[in-house]
Amino acid sequence: MARVAARRTTARQAQLFDQLVALFLDEGFAHFTLDDIAARLRCSKSTLYALAENKDRLVYAVTVHFFRGATERVEADVAEVAGAETRIRAYLESVGRQLEPASARFMDDIAATPVAREVYERNTRLAADRVRVLISEGVAAGELRDVHAAFAADVVATVMVRIQQRQVAERTGLADAQAYRELAALLTHGLTP
């Protein structure tokens, strides 16, 4: 799978990935065939095969592209603010904003598709680790209550996994983006002295 992530893309391929992300976010992807996708993007199947050798690999590559861009935007948002509580809130709320365009069908397709679910799970683990680092920095700076950062991050990771697996949506009716905003509020209010 690293082969897809490591492949250099041309400007046209990057544009196609952006179009694929927009299409998948809006309508999901499980129901599309490669012929459907090519027709929607007004390109040939051979153009799609230049992106990935089959639909599963294309879904994987598009999911990687989506999360890579989302991560860059989240980190840019965090870089704009100061203070531990504000950085944690900015991080989690920004994650939520990145998921706002995602339709329920897209999120359901991700949960039901192993190659896409793997990417989401990996990004969820990385996000939970990033929150752990932000908490540790805040505790070390005396800006946050002296909590066990690894435990707090584990709690966050558990909720993030439940969001990713669609359990929060099923139990609460909250969309993933809303759930991340609620998690940000709960976490930052609980950490402030």
Rank of each mutant, 00 (worst) to 15 (best):
F29Y: 05
V21S: 12
E75C: 07
T86M: 09
D35V: 15
V139M: 11
I163M: 01
K55W: 11
R7C: 07
Q19S: 08
A149H: 04
T113N: 02
I88Q: 05
E80N: 11
R145Q: 10
A116V: 00
I88T: 06
G96I: 01
R89F: 00
R130N: 11
T33M: 02
T192A: 12
A61P: 08
T158P: 00
G69Y: 04
T192L: 13
I163K: 01
D108N: 13
V74A: 02
H65E: 10
D56E: 11
T47H: 13
L174K: 07
H189L: 10
Q19L: 01
A6D: 04
D176H: 15
T63V: 01
D176T: 12
E53P: 13
Y180C: 04
A140L: 07
V159I: 11
E53F: 00
G142I: 08
A82S: 14
A38H: 08
A2H: 05
M107E: 14
G142K: 03
Y49L: 12
Q167E: 11
A52G: 13
V81S: 07
E75R: 15
L16Q: 10
A175S: 04
G173N: 03
G83F: 01
R181P: 01
V156C: 02
E118P: 02
L34E: 15
F32M: 13
E72C: 07
F17C: 14
N54K: 05
S94L: 01
D18G: 14
A38L: 04
R68S: 08
A127R: 12
D26R: 04
V159H: 03
V81E: 05
R162E: 08
A82I: 07
F106P: 05
F17L: 15
F24Y: 03
S46D: 11
T9Y: 08
S44R: 14
R68N: 10
T10R: 05
A39Y: 05
R162D: 14
A22Q: 04
R12L: 13
S103D: 07
L134Y: 10
D129E: 15
A128H: 12
V62E: 02
A157V: 04
V64Y: 09
H65G: 08
R8F: 04
D26A: 08
S103F: 01
R130M: 06
H189N: 15
E121H: 14
E85T: 15
Y120K: 12
E27H: 13
V95I: 08
L126C: 02
E93W: 06
V139C: 06
